[in-house]
Simulated assay, not measured.
Amino acid sequence: MRAYVMHKPGDVDELQLTTLPDPTPKKNWILIEIKGFGLNRSELYTRQGHSGDAVTLPRILGIECVGVVLDGGGTDLIKGQKVVAAMGEMGRKHDGGYAEKALLPRSHVYPISTNLPWEILAALPESYLTAWGVLHETIDISHGQKVLIRGGSSSVGLAAINIAKDHGLHVLATTRSESKSAKLKQAGADEIILDQGNISDIVKSKTGSGVDGVVELVGLPATITDSLQCCRDKGVVGMVGFLGNTWEYEFFPWMPSTVRLSLYSSETLEKNYATPVMQQIVQKIESGAYRPNIEQVFSFEELHQAHRIMETNTASGKLVVVT
């Protein structure tokens, strides 16, 4: 099989296209023929050398993929079954999705029933499962609430807008670039805020007492502190991303009374929770209620180009690679 192997951090050329033996099947691990995968900023940070001991090298990166089962490892999964895989040390402690085949633990492989094209299915797992988790598990949204998506033009941000609007929420979304406002409106955002760093006064002027929840995707100390100020009493800030390119979280903010700060990590995903949620997400995509939010699709040979675009931070939506 072909795979992109990283032996040391550095520029995009450190992702070396290599021919390797196919993974050897083993019990309770699923051998997958990969049909596509989405790119994620955590993979960019790893390539740049910011992941420390969390990633062992050499490594095939990639924290998500979609494809077809080649060997079920003695589990309930059978050859030919369509599956989605995400997280569970994928691309960190064991090889991930930047390959034509992968051997992944059953706990993080989710069988799926769909006829969606591979490039659309590949755009969904990490972005939608993360957005779903922060909205439902961290903020615990309900119909009629107001939510702020801070970093709305990212793939997770766009997915969060789609989910929140479908759930009947009033959605405010931020972007640092006015050129991305149309994409946020298209995704369903009710109000767009141009984020210059301090937006709590703007948010409260639009909502009265503040929003019920904030999906905090920027992750800088200043924006987290400001996002806490955007909330009403007993509001929740769900921290879920580091678009500000600060990988470490090492401060504890002074919070307004009764407002809560929490974290949602897709590392908590496992098959019993993620399988039915992923199936529901796919059905929403099929019905048109959710959008795949794809910025661009690349061939397997164009992975370097895709990484360069991700590094410029100009994409609005998901970068997808098909094998």
Rank of each mutant, 00 (worst) to 15 (best):
A3E: 06
Y4K: 11
H7R: 14
L17P: 01
T19N: 15
L20M: 14
T24V: 15
Q48R: 11
T56F: 10
C65W: 06
V66P: 02
V66I: 11
V69Q: 03
L70V: 07
L70H: 01
V83F: 00
A85R: 04
M90I: 02
R92D: 09
S107N: 13
N115Y: 04
L116Q: 07
L124S: 10
S127H: 02
T130L: 04
V134Y: 11
V134Q: 08
E137W: 04
I139T: 00
I149H: 03
R150Q: 14
G152V: 00
S154C: 01
S154V: 01
V156A: 03
A164E: 02
G168C: 08
L169M: 13
H170Q: 14
I193V: 14
Q196V: 13
I199P: 05
S205K: 14
V215D: 00
V218R: 01
T225P: 00
R232Y: 02
V236P: 02
V236A: 05
G238D: 03
G241V: 05
T246Y: 10
W247F: 15
F252C: 08
W254H: 14
W254L: 12
T268G: 02
N272A: 12
A274S: 15
A274D: 05
T275Q: 12
V277Q: 10
V277S: 10
Q280H: 13
Q283G: 08
I285Q: 06
Q296S: 14
V297R: 09
V297F: 02
E311D: 15
